[in-house]
Amino acid sequence: MLSDAILLALAPVFFVMGLGYAAGRMHIVENHQVDSLNKLVMDFALPASVFAATASASRSEMLAQAPLFAISGGVMLLLYLAWYVRQHASSKIGKEDAALQALTIAFPNLAGVGLPIVSAVLGPTGVVPVAVTLAAGSILVSPLTLILLEINGGKDGGAAGPMTARILGALRRALTKPVVLAPVLGIALSLSEVRLGPVVDACLLLIGHAAAGVALFLTGLVLSGQSFRLDWKVVRATAAADIIRPLLTALVVFILPVSAETAKVAILLAAVPSGFFGILFAVNYRLDSATAGSMVIASTVFSIITMAIAIAVLFPG
């Protein structure tokens, strides 16, 4: 039955996320010092998983993902810029906070929610489109946020060094992160038809298999340390992330000549709730993370409904 398939896809995701949330709220695991778990996910497990998935894909399979990269990246960038410009123009918040909010809304939680959901719906082949979409967001909106943070303050008030040097430094830091380099290198190996061999694949997958579960636990843990404040900005942000993002993607794939499979995967990944990069960036740059945290909590809870609808409509079988 369709309801069983939806439950099978969503229940494990929110169960593990709930475990992380409960562990943080009950102080079983420290929810304000998540650097170590974050490094495990973002610097080791997730890069290993997406690198193995992309590098092992054939050249034809990887070329078939080009429309997904363009569509997902374009939608994220458009939503990012729209929210940033509107917030900066119509409210009293600074450019740094507007950038963090835009990142939170535009960049879905592909590591924590997207990977296990798509894997449950599509099977092992779902890792490749998640890796490609993650690469699109990591190359486009994540570096843009870092640049805006550096230009408008940085960690120490924005007085350190010339503007050009700060921008180049922000780009270097963003583009040399393992979670960015891994899919890029994997895509390059796939396109060049270089194969790593079964031993290397097995080594990478052993740590890579931890990515989805630990990322979900980390998401719940991060959310447990955030104060929740429901206001109209959070409501609008939730609507933008959970409703407008997948509908905008649906409009794009309807207009463009893309395959039905690419269209369905693009919409499903666009329906994934807001990611927690904005929270982590806020902590790193000593900025207020309460608004971004509220956005992530509301988006994650509401996505139980929107993702169930997306799976039912896109994958009725």
Rank of each mutant, 00 (worst) to 15 (best):
I297L: 14
G293H: 06
A271M: 12
F281I: 02
T291Y: 07
K264D: 09
A270L: 09
V296D: 04
Y285C: 09
A271T: 13
A271G: 13
V296R: 04
A292S: 13
V283R: 11
F281C: 02
I279W: 10
F276R: 06
S274K: 09
Y285I: 11
L287K: 15
R286M: 00
V272T: 14
A292T: 14
L268T: 04
F276K: 03
K264I: 00
G293W: 07
F281T: 02
F276W: 06
K264V: 00
G293S: 08
G293A: 05
F281V: 01
A271W: 06
T262E: 04
V265T: 15
S289D: 13
P273T: 09
A282L: 03
N284A: 12
L268D: 01
V265R: 03
G293T: 06
Y285F: 15
F281D: 00
F276V: 14
I279R: 10
D288Q: 10
E261L: 10
T291N: 08
A292D: 11
E261A: 15
A292F: 01
Y285H: 15
L269G: 01
R286H: 12
M295V: 11
G275E: 03
A266W: 02
N284Y: 08
V283G: 05
G275K: 12
V265C: 05
S289R: 14
L269P: 00
I297Y: 01
V283C: 00
G293E: 03
F276G: 05
Y285D: 08
L280H: 04
V296P: 04
F277Q: 09
S274D: 06
V265Y: 01
S289N: 11
P273V: 12
P273E: 10
D288G: 06
T262L: 11
P273G: 12
F276I: 13
A270D: 09
V272N: 04
L269M: 15
V272C: 11
A290T: 10
G293N: 07
V296H: 08
T262G: 09
N284W: 02
S289L: 00
L268M: 14
I297P: 01
L287C: 03
A290L: 05
L269K: 00
D288L: 07
E261Y: 07
A263C: 08
Y285L: 12
Y285M: 13
K264E: 02
V265D: 01
I297M: 13
T262K: 05
L269D: 00
F277I: 13
I279G: 05
S294E: 05
A270T: 08
V272K: 07
E261K: 12
S289A: 14
G278L: 04
A282V: 06
A266M: 09
I267K: 09
L269F: 00
V283Y: 02
V296T: 10
